[in-house]
C-alpha cells in the first residue's frame, strides 16, 4: 500500500493546515438533510427560516463539521486518522456563499507510543466573519512513514 499524506517529521507547531474553501448550494443542503433524515424546516423552507429570524435556509451544523473533517483528511491522507472533532457554530451559514475552513497545529505529542496532533479550527464566511470554531485531534498510523 502506498501511503499518501503528510509526514509527522514535517509538521511544526503553530503552522497552518491547507485551507478548504467550499460553497454549499441549496441542493447540497437539501441532500444533507435527506441523507441524515433531518427534517428541520429551516434547512429547506426559506419561509420557515425567515420566521425564525434567519436570513435564508441555513447550512446544517453537522455539514460544517464534515467540511472541517474533509480539510483534515485531505491534509493527513493515509498517514493518520481523525480521532476527535469538536466544533461550535456561532453564526448562521447560508447556501451560495463561500465558507473557508482553516486550521493550525496547536500541539504535537507522542503519548503511549502514538503520535498525536491537536489542531485549532475556524470556519469563516466571505466577509471574514467567524461561523464556527473548534478543535480536532488526529492520530498517526504506526506505518505512516513507510510511504
Amino acid at each position: 500500500m502506498k501511503i499518501h499524506g503528510v509526514h509527522w517529521e514535517d509538521i511544526c507547531v503553530n503552522t497552518a493546515i491547507p485551507e478548504l474553501r467550499v460553497c454549499p448550494d441549496p441542493m447540497q443542503v437539501f441532500m444533507f438533510s435527506a441523507v441524515t433524515w433531518n427534517r428541520h424546516r429551516i434547512h429547506y423552507s426559506k419561509d420557515a427560516a425567515l420566521c425564525e429570524g434567519l436570513p435564508d435556509v441555513v447550512v446544517q451544523r453537522a455539514l460544517i463539521g464534515d467540511f472541517l473533517a474533509r480539510m483534515l483528511t485531505d491534509w493527513v491522507g493515509d498517514s493518520a486518522e481523525l480521532h476527535r472533532l469538536a466544533w461550535k457554530v456561532i453564526r448562521s451559514a447560508v447556501p451560495g456563499r463561500d465558507i473557508v475552513c482553516r486550521g493550525r497545529i496547536q500541539d504535537k505529542t507522542v503519548r503511549g507510543g502514538k503520535k498525536h496532533l491537536v489542531c485549532e479550527l475556524t470556519v469563516s464566511n466571505e466577509n471574514g466573519e467567524t461561523i464556527a470554531c473548534g478543535e480536532a485531534e488526529v492520530v498517526f498510523h504506526a506505518d505512516h512513514a513507510l510511504g
Binding site: A48, E52, R61, L85, A86, K88
Partner: peptide, 24 residues
C-alpha cells in the same frame, strides 16, 4: 418546525440559535 424529536423537550423556547458537536 420539523426539528428532530431528540430535542423536542417541553421548554419555553422555539427557535434554534446554534449549537455544538463533539465527536470521537
Amino acid at each position: 418546525d420539523g426539528s428532530p424529536s431528540e430535542i423536542d423537550v417541553p421548554i419555553p423556547a422555539q427557535r434554534t440559535v446554534g449549537g455544538a458537536s463533539s465527536y470521537e
